[in-house]
Structure formats: structure tokens, C-alpha cells
Design a protein around this nucleic acid. Structure first.
Lengths: 151, 151
DNA sequence: TGCATATGGTTTAATATCAAACTATGTGGT
DNA sequence: ACCACATAGTTTGATATTAAACCATATGCA
């Protein structure tokens, strides 16, 4: 079945709305972050915590959808802050291995604590049931765009 | 009813997913744009087309959620490209009035034509019915964040 | 072994964005 | 009329990001 004109309009509005929500929530996030932690920095710490450490910068960059150059920058900040440990890869001389440190874990926990009130506020305004229903759709869209980007 | 821990987790994932979709779709958008038109530029042209011209830069900035500084920049590009007309406001000496031009309309149409295949591809991968269902939720979240940002 | 090519990471140049300072104009109250 | 304050837009300085060039190391193949 081919998409009608209204379908296109709909999708357009959908993506437009997503763009704005992303912008607003990202800004709100950084506003409450302690110690000037950045969203990108947090995302890396979170990734390392949830999926485990011992990852290369490139792996992380791909996972969080930024270029390697951007990851070099973020990694630098996190390392200078003492939130991650960076060691050369034992077997591949080109590569590095990243692990979160104890201070890093604490910083992540503090960050989560800081956003929690914001998230609660959202949860108070929008039923979590509909959020739960919308999430799979978002995931499908993301998966599609992801696939399309790579090939 | 107060939000449970899982609700918070859910919302977090939700917003995270939104951030990634926004990034991927924005990048995909600019990739197919003709003449190096930028997403922000398109958004302004689109806004002027849909809601009518004779608007001030500040109105547009607020509508599309960027700072006035960013709007100064975007307006400059669009004007240099001949896509908008900028005239001083007749009654308020501080202000300007923006209108889209014929070339601007054509550029917008061309832009839409260029993204259409992309949107069709998305529509092929994700049912438009679920998109339609998710949209109101997004709008509610956006409205909330918007309200919260301002006051 | 050695060379072509691929891959991990850094650097560079350009750009968009933001917050905050600044300029100029309008507005309201005394 | 004046002065304090608000508002529209621009400018400035900092920063994150990207794409592309660049370096160093690995890998595959002759």
C-alpha cells in the first residue's frame, strides 16, 4: 500500500514535533545538570553503565549516533573530569578502551537524581500509559532510520 | 498519583529515543536538501507558508523554539538567498516584518519534493496508524515542556 | 616479506547554536 | 516632559557538532 498525501503530511508533523520535543527536553536536561555536565557526556556515562565498560570510543560513538570526532571531544571532557578511565587496547595498537570510574558512577547517579524531578513533572502532565504506547513506534522509526543511514 | 520508578525509567527511555530519532531524521533531511538548504531555514519557510507572513523575527523564533540570535542568523541566510523579504515595521521602529517571496515558495516546494521519498520510505516501514496515535502524545509532551520553559 | 588498503582515533575548518551583553526604540508612570 | 523599564534585534564569545584530511597501526594478499 502506497502512502497518501495525508500520510506524508502526518509523518512530517510527527517528525517536526519530535524535533521540538528533543530540543526542549535536551535544554531542560542541561539546565538542571550539576557541574555543567552535558547531555552527550551523560549519555556516554549512561551507556557505559548500562551496557558495561571496556568499549572503544568508536563503538560508543556508533551506539550514541555521533561522529568519531565528537566522541574524541566528549571522551576528553569525561577523562579530564575523572569520570572515565582510558587505556590503550592491549591487542590493537590503534584502539583505546574506555571504562567508567567510581566518580563517574557517582556523577551519573547525581545526574539522574537531578533530572528525576523534571521527569516526574512530565509524568504528572502526560499519562505514562500513552508514553508506553508511543515508545514502540518511536523505536520502530529509529530502527528504520538507523538501518537506512547505514545501508 | 505519583510516578513510580518504572514510570521514570520509561519516560527516560522515551525522551532518549526521541533525541535519537530527531538527530537521525534531521541529518537525513539535510542530506537530501537541494541547494544546501538547512533544516532551520526550511522550518522558517514552512512556518511562513502555513501560518502566513507579515511576522516578526521574534515571533518566528518563539514559534520554532530557537533564540533570537539564532533567528538573526537564519533570517540573514534566507534573505541573502532571496527566499524572504525583510522590511522595517511601519509602526514599531524596533521591529521587522518577514514575508516569504515567490522564490522562497518555490524553494520550499522543492524541499518538500526532495524529502517526500524519504517520508514515503518511513511510511512504508511504520504504519501511519500508529504514527497518528503517537502524535497527540508528542504534542502533549511538547506543550508541557513549552509551558514549563516559559513559566 | 612487503605493499595496498582498511580501520581507530585526532585534528582542522566551517557552521549552528546558545547565553549574555549591547543598541535602539517604545511605554507607562510621575 | 522625563526617567525607568521593557522589548526587538544584533553582536560577541564559547561550545558542540560535522565532514574531511590526516596519522598510525592492522590485515590481506601476492
Amino acid at each position: 500500500m502506497t502512502a497518501s498525501e495525508e500520510d506524508i503530511q502526518l509523518l512530517f508533523r510527527f517528525l517536526n514535533e519530535i524535533g521540538i520535543v528533543a530540543q526542549l527536553s535536551g535544554a531542560a536536561f542541561e539546565k538542571v545538570m550539576p557541574g555543567g555536565m552535558t547531555l552527550s557526556q551523560f549519555v556516554v556515562l549512561n551507556h557505559l553503565t548500562r551496557l558495561g565498560g571496556n568499549r572503544t570510543p568508536l563503538q560508543i560513538a556508533r551506539a550514541v549516533q555521533v561522529t568519531k570526532g565528537a566522541m574524541t571531544n566528549t571522551i576528553g571532557h569525561l577523562e579530564r573530569a575523572g569520570f572515565i578511565a582510558v587505556v590503550p587496547d592491549a591487542v590493537d595498537g590503534r584502539s583505546k578502551r574506555i571504562d567508567i570510574t567510581e566518580p563517574g558512577r557517582r556523577a551519573r547517579a547525581a545526574a539522574i537524581k537531578a533530572v528525576e524531578p523534571e521527569l516526574r513533572a512530565v509524568a504528572g502532565a502526560v499519562s505514562t500509559r500513552e508514553i508506553a504506547e508511543a515508545l514502540p513506534t518511536l523505536e520502530r522509526v529509529r530502527a528504520f532510520l538507523d538501518r537506512r543511514r547505514n545501508g
